[in-house]
C-alpha cells in the first residue's frame, strides 16, 4: 500500500527522495501510474512526482526544440514552431488527457509521440545522481535507462517544412489507441529522397525504425510507385501483436497501406 507521495521541486530534492526510496515509482501526468494505484494491491509504496521539478518547459534555440519530459502534451500545441506536430498532438488521447499526460510519459509508454521522436532523430537528456548524458531517443527506447536515471528533456531539430509525415490508424477518430502509427522525415532533393527516417508504432512492442523501407526510398524518385513498393518491405521490421483493437494479422496487413498514406496523403492511388 502507498506510504508516501513526494513532490520534489528540484533535481537535488529528487535525488534525495530517490535515495530514501530507491524503489519509488515516478509519476508525472498520472495517466499511466494512477490507474494502477487506484486498482490497489500494486505493491508501490512511494510515488515521486515529477510535476514540480521544473522540467516542463519548451524552448527553442537555433532550430532546435528542447522539451522538458514533464511538459504536458497539450503544452506542445502552444508553440508555433511545433505546428508540424499538430496532427500528432491531436491524435493522442483527448484534450483533457493531454493536459495531464507528459512527453516523458508518452516516451516510456511507447506512444505516438515517441514514434515521432524516433523519426525526428531526437536526443534524450538523461541525468543520474551525479552526471548528465545524452543519447538518441531511439536507443533509449530500445534499451531503456539505467537504474537511478531520469530522462529530463528531449530535443530535436525542427524539420524542414513539408518533410514531416504522419498517419495514425485507430478504431475511433479521436482518443483511440494506435493500430499502426507512421512518422517519417522525407527530405527531397530535386524530387529524390535524401536520407529519410521512418518510424512505426503500434506494430511491435516498441516503436521501430522501418529501415528496409528507408533503404528502398533513399536516392529514389519520390512517387507513388516507389513508395508502394518500399512500403511492402515494412513487413520485415514489425512484430505485430494482437490486442483488443486489432489482430496481429490486421496490423501486418495494413501497415504498408498506412505507410503509403502517411507519405503520399490520403488521396494516394485515388483513380
Amino acid at each position: 500500500m502507498l506510504q508516501a507521495v513526494v513532490t520534489p521541486t528540484s533535481l537535488g530534492d529528487l535525488r534525495k527522495a530517490l535515495k530514501l526510496a530507491p524503489k519509488a515509482t515516478l509519476v508525472a501526468g498520472g495517466t499511466l501510474v494512477m490507474p494502477i494505484i487506484n486498482e490497489g494491491a500494486h505493491g508501490i509504496s512511494t510515488l515521486v512526482s515529477l510535476s514540480k521539478l521544473g522540467i516542463d518547459a519548451v524552448s527553442f534555440k537555433k532550430g532546435i526544440a528542447t522539451i522538458g519530459a514533464a511538459a504536458p502534451i497539450a503544452e506542445l500545441a502552444r508553440h508555433s514552431e511545433l505546428k508540424f506536430l499538430s496532427a500528432v498532438i491531436d491524435s493522442i488521447g483527448s484534450p483533457t488527457l493531454r493536459n495531464m499526460a507528459t512527453v516523458g510519459g508518452n516516451l516510456f509508454a511507447y506512444g505516438d509521440l515517441a514514434v515521432c521522436l524516433v523519426a525526428l532523430d531526437a536526443t534524450a537528456i538523461v541525468v543520474n545522481a551525479k552526471s548528465k548524458r545524452s543519447a538518441p531517443v531511439e536507443e533509449i527506447i530500445k534499451k531503456g535507462v539505467k537504474a537511478g536515471e531520469l530522462v529530463t528533456h528531449v530535443s530535436f531539430a525542427i524539420p524542414k517544412p513539408g518533410t514531416f509525415k504522419y498517419a495514425k490508424a485507430s478504431r475511433r477518430a479521436l482518443n483511440s489507441a494506435s493500430i499502426v502509427t507512421v512518422a517519417a522525415i522525407i527530405p527531397l532533393v530535386k524530387g529524390m529522397v535524401a536520407d529519410c527516417r521512418i518510424a512505426l508504432g503500434g506494430v511491435a512492442a516498441k516503436p521501430v525504425r522501418a529501415k528496409s523501407v528507408e533503404k528502398l526510398l533513399n536516392a529514389k524518385l519520390f512517387d507513388e510507385k516507389t513508395v508502394r513498393a518500399a512500403a511492402a518491405a515494412a513487413a520485415k521490421e514489425i512484430a505485430p501483436f494482437t490486442d483488443a483493437y486489432a489482430s496481429a494479422w490486421y496490423r501486418a496487413r495494413v501497415t504498408p497501406v498506412h505507410i503509403c498514406r502517411a507519405l503520399l496523403g490520403d488521396a494516394a492511388g485515388k483513380s
Binding site: 513526494v6 513532490t7 498520472g30 494512477m34 487506484n38 486498482e39 493536459n99 495531464m100
Partner: peptide, 29 residues
C-alpha cells in the same frame, strides 16, 4: 472508472480540464 478512461470526473485544475481520478492531491497543493 478510476482509470482516466471515461471523463466523468473532469474538473478544472488551475483553469484546465483534468481528470480528478488521476491526480494525487499532494501534487496539486
Amino acid at each position: 472508472c478510476d482509470q482516466g478512461s471515461c471523463g466523468s470526473c473532469t474538473v478544472l485544475v488551475d483553469g484546465k480540464a483534468k481528470l480528478a481520478c488521476l491526480i494525487p492531491v499532494e501534487t496539486i497543493a
